[in-house]
Simulated assay, not measured.
Amino acid sequence: MRYTAARTRRAVIRLTMRLQEGLEEATRRPDRGDISTTTVIIWVAAVTGAVLIAGTIAIVIAKYNGKLNGL
């Protein structure tokens, strides 16, 4: 039990120190290369378009599946 408590304490200390270092880095360098809003919009549009195209193809194949068997 004491071993688990010691490991947990060390893990919490490491995480706290890592978080503090990250916050200090963010304060020192506010522009860390974060993803811009435009990039997020482009990715969402691309993924949405791909899902729509794949869905349309699946619907067409399901609808005409019997007719496509003879090809």
Rank of each mutant, 00 (worst) to 15 (best):
Met1Pro: 05
Arg2Cys: 10
Arg2Asn: 11
Arg2Ile: 14
Arg2Lys: 10
Tyr3Val: 07
Tyr3Phe: 08
Tyr3Cys: 10
Tyr3Ala: 15
Thr4Ile: 11
Thr4Ala: 14
Thr4Val: 14
Thr4Met: 08
Ala5Phe: 11
Ala5Asp: 15
Ala5Ile: 10
Ala6Met: 09
Ala6Lys: 10
Ala6Gln: 09
Thr8Glu: 11
Arg9Lys: 14
Arg9Met: 10
Arg9Ser: 10
Arg9Leu: 11
Arg10His: 08
Arg10Met: 09
Arg10Gln: 11
Arg10Leu: 13
Ala11His: 04
Val12Ile: 15
Val12Leu: 15
Ile13Gly: 00
Ile13Phe: 06
Arg14His: 08
Arg14Ala: 11
Arg14Gly: 03
Leu15Met: 13
Leu15Arg: 11
Leu15Ala: 14
Thr16Lys: 03
Thr16Ser: 13
Thr16Met: 07
Met17Ala: 14
Met17Ser: 09
Arg18Phe: 09
Arg18Met: 07
Arg18Tyr: 02
Arg18Asn: 06
Gln20Arg: 12
Glu21Trp: 05
Glu21Pro: 01
Glu21Gly: 07
Glu21Gln: 12
Glu24Met: 09
Glu25Arg: 06
Glu25His: 04
Ala26Arg: 05
Ala26Val: 02
Thr27Lys: 04
Arg28Met: 06
Arg29Asn: 11
Pro30Tyr: 05
Asp31Lys: 03
Asp31Leu: 05
Asp31Val: 02
Asp31His: 04
Arg32Asn: 09
Asp34Ser: 05
Asp34Trp: 05
Asp34Thr: 05
Ile35Lys: 06
Ile35Arg: 06
Ile35Asp: 05
Ile35Gln: 08
Ser36Glu: 10
Ser36Val: 07
Thr37Lys: 08
Thr37Asp: 14
Thr37Met: 11
Thr37Ile: 13
Thr37Glu: 14
Thr38Trp: 07
Thr38Gly: 10
Thr38Ser: 15
Thr39Trp: 02
Thr39Ile: 05
Ile41Glu: 14
Ile41Cys: 06
Ile42Trp: 08
Trp43Pro: 00
Trp43Arg: 13
Val44Lys: 05
Val44Met: 07
Ala45Arg: 06
Ala45Gln: 12
Val47Arg: 00
Val47Ile: 13
Val47Asn: 04
Thr48Ser: 08
Thr48Arg: 02
Thr48Phe: 06
Thr48Lys: 02
Thr48Gly: 08
Gly49Gln: 03
Gly49Leu: 10
Ala50Arg: 02
Ala50His: 01
Ala50Leu: 05
Val51Thr: 03
Leu52His: 00
Leu52Gln: 01
Leu52Ala: 08
Leu52Gly: 02
Ile53Arg: 01
Ala54His: 01
Ala54Pro: 00
Ala54Lys: 00
Gly55Tyr: 01
Thr56Phe: 09
Thr56Ile: 11
Ile57Asp: 02
Ile57Asn: 01
Ala58Met: 03
Ala58Arg: 01
Ile59Asp: 03
Val60Met: 05
Ile61Gly: 00
Ile61Lys: 08
Ala62Cys: 09
Ala62Asn: 13
Lys63Ile: 13
Lys63Ala: 14
Lys63Arg: 13
Lys63Gly: 07
Tyr64Pro: 00
Tyr64Cys: 03
Asn65Trp: 13
Asn65Ala: 15
Gly66Tyr: 02
Gly66Leu: 04
Lys67Val: 07
Lys67Gln: 10
Lys67Tyr: 11
Lys67Thr: 12
Leu68Lys: 01
Leu68Trp: 06
Leu68Arg: 02
Asn69Glu: 14
